[in-house]
Write a protein that binds this DNA or RNA. Structure first.
Lengths: 247, 247
DNA sequence: CACCCTCAAGTGGATTGTCCAATAATTGAC
DNA sequence: GTCAATTATTGGACAATCCACTTGAGGGTG
């Protein structure tokens, strides 16, 4: 069986895929060294490096200079970079992003209310506390805002959903951090209150209300941000109309 | 400004990112040749290749041997490979996948009913017709099933949602195609009928009913598949109970 | 004119060998 | 035992070269 000259890099990727599929590589494990992999697979080291770089771009591995190449520990994460490229190429709007967040996060909040363990609840509570502590620092508030939403998604008990929420929220974070300082104390305080209300619904396992409040929060958030970008005397009324349309 | 020895490959990636951000690279465009890029960025060609391979893994570029490297045309697509690796590493269950699909696709169906153009409707109708034509070929049926769901997501008018649906449905397809032949004519016919009903709701802009039927379809699909894997005399009853719990 | 073939140029795919930079492990001194 | 220096191992990258594929230009034929 002669080795096809093409797809050597793809062979590297599929070799790692098979190791994972066979359970021979798990989160936290270290891959063989590049030189060893090159010997094992009978390809050159630059080819190994190209394959590993592809896997790194997919978030499957992380290489550490001088140490080795590892499968990351921790929850499954897709990262935001692929979605970022897509957004740049295809012009994803802020409205699309908020809508996608609503689709994912309203359901995640409902599931979190059904399934959250005490640990999940504690993690969410911690972010709520941090939100209130950050009202005078919009960048810090944004970080805890993102963490809150990820904690809620983790509490949904669905790893795929949590990965999707993480990916979309990371895209939101990349965009929002450029304008986060525009947020007023008033709207951060309102948002912190809503986060707390969502937390309380999750804690008390009230799924329907968790969904309602998460939806409300994301609609508010979208409206506040729209107002930041186009300040008008009619903006408050527009926000209210937006809510009626959804109910 | 001396060039850091590390992160040359990352520099390749960010260079392409900036070209895209500045609108200098759009879908359908061709990147400079590897040799030219190496000169422009003052890095070696294997470094360019590693960077391009990473971009390729993210679906941002496609290289064609002898032709060049291109930004793909067509709708934004995340591909299934990253999610596949995550699934293999973290053990995503079939239930998680169906639930994630319900979160994404029930809302997408509702939005499609609100927003579908005549072209969207025609594309969905075509897949419905193909579903009925494939009832005696489960693999072909599966292909059109997937296409139906993507067409519905495209009709949602939200590119992010459509990309997420495409990604999760691709994961579903990879898994399902191994067992697709287990489907009976009976359950394929039932599914085709449900697809058609969903299509009709989208065509007539009945968002609420589109949501209900999409949810029902995915729950049915999950139940049929569970029955395929664990045939029991109680299975039909279990499927009914599952429906009641969701209503 | 259209079509086909050949060839050269340009492209991606990959190798070999070498060097650099960071980290981990080992060794020796106290 | 601790700590510092040294060595080994690792990832990061380079330069030069060759292979395989595609494209386009030019020439020949009907």
């Amino acid at each position: 069986m002669t080795k096809s000259r093409t797809d050597s890099t793809e062979h590297v990727i599929s070799h790692v895929r098979e190791l994972i599929a066979r359970g021979e590589l798990r989160p936290g494990d270290r891959l063989p060294a590049e030189r060893d992999l090159a010997l094992q697979l009978s390809v050159s080291r630059p080819t190994i490096r190209a394959g590993l770089r592809a896997l790194s771009a997919m978030g499957v591995i992380q290489s550490r200079h001088g140490s080795g190449t590892f499968i990351p520990d921790g929850p499954p994460t897709l990262g935001s970079e692929p979605l970022r490229f897509l957004a740049a190429l295809h012009g994803f709007s802020r409205e699309e992003m908020y809508e996608a967040r609503r689709v994912l996060e309203v359901s995640s909040a409902g599931l979190a209310a059904d399934r959250a363990t005490a640990e999940h609840v504690a993690a969410i509570a911690e972010e709520v506390a941090s939100l209130f502590a950050s009202i005078d620092d919009p960048q810090e508030f944004l970080v805890h805002d993102i963490r809150f939403h990820r904690a809620v998604a983790a509490a949904s008990g669905n790893q795929i959903l949590a990965s999707l929420v993480e990916m979309v929220s990371a895209l939101y974070y990349e965009r929002r951090r450029e304008t986060a300082t525009r947020a007023t104390d008033r709207n951060l305080r309102d948002a912190a209150d809503l986060h707390r209300s969502i937390y309380q619904c999750i804690r008390s396992h009230d799924g329907e209300r968790a969904r309602t409040l998460m939806n409300q929060h994301l609609l508010h958030s979208a409206a506040y941000q729209a107002e930041e970008e186009h300040p008008r005397s009619q903006a408050p009324a527009a926000a209210k109309n937006s809510r009626k349309r959804r109910t």
